[in-house]
Computed example of a mutant assay.
Amino acid sequence: GANAIAFIHAAKTRGVIIDRVPSDEHGQVSVDAMAERLQHADDVALVSLTHVPTNGGLVNPAAAIGRLTRAADVPFLIDACQSVGQLDIDVDEIGCDFLSATGRKYLRGPRGTGFLYARTSILDRVTPSQPDHHGSDWSSTDDYTFVRGARRFEYWEFSHAGWLGLGAAVDVALDLGLDRIEVTVAERASQLRTMLTDLGLTVYDEGLQRCGIVTTASSNIASTDLKAALSSRSINASTTSAGSSRYDVERRNLPNMLRLSVHCTTTVDELKRAIAALTSILQN
């Protein structure tokens, strides 16, 4: 939702044209459709991709898109806010020029923190929209100079405690091993999807590769009520809405869904406990 609103605002204020590339039969972004768009690369200012959408459980084929953008010499921005911390990500393998991430999701770091990766080769092709005197030097009375590297996108004001907390969360993830985290998360999510299906609930996840975000819904009980009932049993869940993923909601005519996210710390016993709670809620 934040990405969409930012681009819509750019369309309204700067004349940007938004071209939404369709999904393929698996629900992920169509690589073929992207390749077709990039045949006219001179008309493309940026390719922006959400690696893991907020709902639907899929992992978009970022590396395949990266190969296309590199061949076309088009800047590539990837939103990895929900993939960093659960997937083993390599920016060189993906081929992105920018990658954004947040601390509060799968990194399990402080809210209000995040980071931006910027490839060195892209820096002279882009301009920060609102530079300050941290990312730029006031080099003369009427001019300024960007500092070297990606720090030009940073601002002077930030939370030092939050920054240290984010670093600690990253250290934990690296110590556990992102390759191990990815395998464990995928296994737990697959187990949960099977359990939900066996319970008679619809699982709405798509994609050839799926992640730790699992979405479901009941035809009899609203997802917000399911979330509240689970919360009363000390089981954390969230719900999705059109405001955060309108493109997908309208494409598939999705209901508000219950979102159950697993992590490498999630145990099989916890999955069974959640399913037992859902069974009890649905039967009463």
Results as ranks from 00 to 15, higher is better:
N284S: 15
D142M: 13
C211Q: 06
S139W: 10
R125W: 00
D175R: 11
G177P: 09
V214K: 03
G57K: 05
D269T: 11
A64K: 13
R20K: 09
R104Q: 15
M195Y: 13
T102W: 10
Y155F: 13
I78M: 05
T102E: 07
D248L: 14
L192P: 06
D92H: 11
P22Q: 06
Y144E: 03
L254I: 00
L271C: 14
R108E: 02
S223P: 08
P128T: 00
S83N: 06
Q28A: 13
V249M: 15
D205L: 06
A6Y: 08
T265I: 00
P22S: 07
G95I: 04
W138L: 09
R273V: 10
D124C: 01
H26A: 13
F98R: 10
Q28L: 01
I122H: 06
S83L: 06
S280H: 11
T120K: 07
E154R: 03
V170I: 15
L107Y: 12
S244A: 11
Q28G: 02
I235K: 03
L46M: 14
G165W: 10
I181A: 00
R108G: 02
A173F: 02
L282H: 12
G1F: 08
H51L: 14
K272E: 15
D43A: 13
E25W: 02
R251G: 01
I18R: 12
I235G: 05
G1T: 15
L260Q: 01
S219A: 09
V44F: 06
A10W: 04
A118P: 04
L201H: 02
L178F: 11
L208E: 12
D88T: 05
A186N: 02
N220V: 04
I122K: 06
C264I: 07
G177A: 03
E157W: 01
T267N: 12
G57F: 03
G114W: 13
I235Q: 05
A71L: 06
R148L: 02
R14V: 01
D88F: 02
L196I: 05
S219I: 07
A10E: 02
D88H: 15
F76S: 02
H133D: 15
T145A: 09
H133W: 14
A242G: 04
M195D: 08
A276H: 14
G207C: 09
H26E: 04
R259L: 09
D88P: 08
L166T: 09
V44K: 05
L282C: 14
I122N: 08
